[in-house]
Simulated assay, not measured.
Amino acid sequence: MKKLLTASALMFGVMGTGVAQAAEEVNVYSYRQPFLIEPMLDAFTKETGIKVNVKFAKEGLAEKLHQEGEYSPADVLLTVDIARLKELDSKDLVQALDSEVIEANVPAQFRDNDDRWFSLTLRSRGVYSSRDRVGKLGDDFDYLDLAKPEFKGKICTRSGKHPYNVSLISAIIANHGEAAAKAWLEGVKANLARKPQGNDRAQVKAISEGLCDVSLGNSYYLGKMLADEKQIPWAESVYLNYPGQDANGTHVNVSGMALAKYAPNKENAQKLMEFLTSDVAQKMYAELNYEDPVKPGVASSELVASWGEYRADDLSLESVAENHEKAMKLLDEVKFDL
């Protein structure tokens, strides 16, 4: 009997330790590469003592969460692009989080109406132009201008169905209507210098090599190219332009977060999510990733600021997400990638 009691005591001791340990942890599933978010997570651990465990996924995050169901260890979900945030929401893989801190830090335009997802950083979709052959595009330049005959054979872009482009098309539908968006896609396709391919940096490389003169691309890639010795010549061959300054404004997408539906460490998850919207984390995002902070009053990095100020489109991300299926349908209709 004494041995049994001792064994039982040991067992409960281990279980107790396990519970205490879990209470000081938070589990993150992330589409964002570890090196992009680790500095913020390390700062959170240093401030709170809560350990952050990260699982990185290049794709299939929603499928993984669905398979794990209520036994999923995921607490916080980190991803990029409104389409991916809405996917997690529409598949009922997240839960609402009522946080006065987050609501104060993240403008309503950049969070879900029901508090099921929140933006962390802003990612403007700019247009790169050749310094030598085109020069800087003026404030009157708009995305719609890319469909004009003057750009015949001069445009490079990644796949139209990449989330970054789908969200841009969704915004054009919201601002100008479906018919206008289809006409725009047809015009841009007619102006392509080559079949859509590669990523945003590959388009800037193509400009530097003289294959095209302008390309669509997220602004932060300019910072990433300037930080890579081999890619500096690409970056120095282009100007970054913010379209729509005399129209609807520059389209912005986001990186964002959500609270997993079955989060086992909900209290710690909330602490982490609130920290990621704080001045400290927002400034780190700005300096390390060349993205714009979502929290008003936190300055962009000196490098990003040197690219110029811009007025962002004031469309809510909900409005953009609502047109995702229409955008995909139009891409198929005009056979944009073929």
Rank of each mutant, 00 (worst) to 15 (best):
Thr250Asn: 12
Asn248Phe: 15
Tyr285His: 09
Glu267Arg: 06
Ser215Thr: 08
Ala281Ile: 08
Thr277Asn: 07
Cys212Asp: 02
Lys283Glu: 14
Leu276Pro: 03
Tyr262Asp: 02
Asn248Val: 08
Trp234Gly: 04
Gly198Lys: 05
Ala227Val: 12
Ala206Ile: 09
Ala247Ser: 15
Ala206Asn: 10
Leu240Pro: 07
Ala263Pro: 01
Val280His: 10
Ala263Gln: 00
Tyr285Phe: 15
Ala263Ile: 03
Glu209Tyr: 08
Glu267Gln: 12
Ala260Pro: 03
Met273His: 07
Leu259Pro: 09
Gln282Leu: 06
Tyr239Gln: 10
Met225Thr: 04
Asn265Gly: 07
Ser255Trp: 09
Tyr285Leu: 03
Tyr285Ser: 09
Ala206Leu: 12
Leu222Lys: 13
Lys271Asn: 09
Lys266His: 00
Asp228Asn: 15
Arg201Phe: 05
Lys224Tyr: 14
Gly223Val: 02
Glu267Val: 08
Ala258Met: 00
Lys271Pro: 07
Asp213Asn: 15
Asn241Gly: 01
Met257Phe: 04
Gln282Cys: 09
Met273Gln: 05
Leu259Gly: 01
Arg201Cys: 05
Ile207Lys: 04
Tyr242Asp: 11
Tyr221Asn: 13
Asn218Arg: 04
Thr250Met: 14
Gly244Tyr: 03
Asn248Tyr: 13
Asn241Tyr: 06
Val238Lys: 02
Leu276Ser: 02
Tyr220Trp: 15
Gln197Ser: 14
Met225Lys: 03
Phe275His: 13
Tyr242Arg: 05
Met225Tyr: 13
Gln245Phe: 13
Asn268Ala: 11
Ile207Gly: 04
Lys271Gly: 05
Leu211His: 14
Leu226Ile: 15
Ala235Ile: 03
Asn248Cys: 10
Gly256Cys: 03
Glu267Tyr: 01
Asn268Lys: 04
Gly210His: 10
Tyr285Val: 02
Thr277Ala: 08
Ala258Asp: 01
Tyr285Asp: 00
Ala227Arg: 13
Asn241Glu: 03
Ser255Met: 09
Ile232Pro: 03
Asn248Ser: 06
Asn253Ala: 13
Val214Arg: 00
Glu274Phe: 07
Ile232Asn: 06
Glu236Ile: 11
Ala260Thr: 06
Pro264Val: 05
Ser237Glu: 09
Met225Gly: 10
Ala235His: 06
Ser215Lys: 07
Ser255Tyr: 01
Lys205Met: 14
Tyr242Ala: 00
Gly217Glu: 00
Val280Trp: 02
Ser219Arg: 07
Gly244Thr: 07
Leu272His: 00
